[in-house]
Amino acid sequence: MSDLNVMTPEESAATKAAVMNQVPGPEIQGQSPLHHADLESLAQKGPKTGGVHLRELKLLGHLTLRCNAENAEQLAAVERVLGVALPLQPLTSAENGAYSIRWMSPDEWLILVPGMETFDIETKFRDEMPGHYSLVNSSGGSTVLELSGANVLEVLKKSTPVDLHPKAFPVGKVVSTLFAKSGAVIRRSGEQRYELVIRRSFADYIWLWLQDASREYGLVIEA
């Protein structure tokens, strides 16, 4: 880690981008955007059966990579760091164990990694990536909700205008779209399982929305 505060002016001028380990020691517990909803208690006390299951995949590392999809050196570097190639086809995703990569835009990917590995991976990127790119840690700004169950499609259809029919939305597909009056990055992670990446400040709204939209099917909270 480059500590700006102890750098000489020359060192400082040579620093192209600031990278910092933003996660404190294990004695300080982070609060995910839905911390206040206390999903753990709801999971214990709430219903165990229902048409829709909700789980927060919290405190993951969220890294946004912007680079050139036509730059072979950059693509190779990504593969060295993550062990999997960037998905270049629009609206697709790739996975390698606990790492997943979502296509966001022709020059943008969202990389999810275990929270404690974030800084390590950021550092590796900074070491490996050539040329013009940007890497931004947005772990505090969003969270992941996993929705599953027999009625998950109905709830999603109430929430987003995207066509979710299995023919149009195969497993692995990713879309950035509207979600109620907010937005979400939706990825189909299984036959009846979807992951939503949502923004922190909208998390409570989306939580309220999902409770309302799933009311007729029954909502099961998983922790």
């Binding site: 629009p90 609206l91 835009s105 022709p106 205008p161 779209t177 509207l178």
Partner: peptide
């Protein structure tokens, strides 16, 4: 033309 599919006007 970037996502290579049709979407609703609300997204634009």
């Amino acid at each position: 033309p970037h996502c290579a599919e049709y979407r609703e006007e609300e997204e634009f």
